[in-house]
């Protein structure tokens, strides 16, 4: 993976091929999925406290190879905290995590990214004053070939702009006309589109989306759902956090229901209805024993 996601300071990813734009990297990521315990990601007993607030209270998590895992839960249930813990954005107090069966702990989002895990955080993690192209390639810039790139570390801006434009078109975000436009001049939905396009383009093992459609219109949300399925078709696993039940039930293979800082149960959307899921989520009904 690291030859593709080469990020870091000033050593921009000169090796990201123009054509595939980093799509699926070298393909090895997908092959590695599913060895060991048969799970891409597994977490047990994750605990995270903020002073007296317990954001994660012994949370478990399982992500299978090539699946779309929906995640639902009330506001403040700890969904975002869980994926931040998994991706190294916050340090957990207790618990263990496994990547393809091997214990790991990321110390920064960069490490997660190098392992092929791309995340759209709820607050998007974009730099408002920088351009769309700059943001898409943040930390994995493409350097120019030849002398200028090698000795003067010159960026290949034209290539980055071309790929960025292509990725946004894939998402149907044609209303963005100028790839050099500052992100702060975009609408909320367009910003979300940029963040999703970035994650989908560069993920090579897992793509995690924390409420990626919250600000999107009907048409754009549809494109994001299609994109999620495209990503899975590339043999990646996807985690989709959303408050939009119909979206979750449309695309998810399994639905992880989060409640009060821990995983309550995992249900099969073909077996349980949305009404069931809401009842479990809010505590109105006990989840079925086999789903725990």
């Amino acid at each position: 993976m690291s030859d593709f996601v080469s990020g870091g300071d000033g050593n921009g990813g000169g090796k990201v091929g123009g054509e595939n734009g980093g799509k699926n990297g070298d393909g090895k990521g997908a092959d590695k999925n599913g060895v060991g315990d048969g799970l891409v990601l597994r977490a047990r007993g994750l605990t995270k406290r903020y002073g007296r607030v317990v954001a994660l209270d012994g949370a478990d998590f399982d992500l299978r190879p090539r699946e779309i895992l929906g995640m639902i839960g009330d506001n403040g249930a700890g969904k975002s905290s869980l994926i931040k813990a998994l991706t190294g954005a916050i340090a957990i107090d207790e618990g263990e995590m496994f990547l393809n069966g091997e214990a790991f702990r990321f110390h920064s989002p960069l490490e997660a990214r190098r392992a092929g895990i791309e995340t759209v955080y709820q607050n998007l993690a974009l730099s408002p004053a920088l351009s769309i192209a700059d943001n898409m390639f943040m930390g994995r810039e493409i350097r120019r070939r030849g002398f200028l790139g090698k000795y003067f570390r010159a960026l290949d801006r034209r290539e980055m702009q071309r790929v960025a434009r292509e990725k946004l078109n894939d998402l149907g975000l044609m209303t963005i006309q100028n790839i050099n436009q500052a992100v702060e001049t975009l609408s909320g939905g367009q910003r979300q589109g940029v963040a999703v396009a970035r994650a989908a383009a560069f993920g090579s093992r897992v793509v995690i989306l924390d409420e990626p459609t919250a600000a999107l219109g009907v048409k754009e949300s549809r494109r994001v759902l299609e994109l999620i399925q495209d990503v899975r078709a590339r043999d990646l696993s996807v985690v989709l956090i959303s408050h939009d039940m119909p979206h979750i039930f449309e695309v998810a293979d399994r639905v992880h229901i989060h409640r009060l800082g821990r995983r309550l149960c995992v249900v099969d959307p073909r077996v349980h209805s949305m009404a069931d899921a809401v009842a479990f989520m809010t505590g109105a009904r006990e989840p079925p024993v086999e789903a725990r």
Binding site: G10, P109, L130, D134, G139, R153, A154, L155
Partner: peptide
């Protein structure tokens, strides 16, 4: 250079830059 872009990103929003992998 990439370094320069990172400098701007950090000045813009350091937490976002960290999450973006800088």
């Amino acid at each position: 250079t990439a370094w320069g872009r990172h400098v701007y990103a950090i000045g813009d929003d350091r937490d976002a830059a960290e999450l973006a992998g800088i």
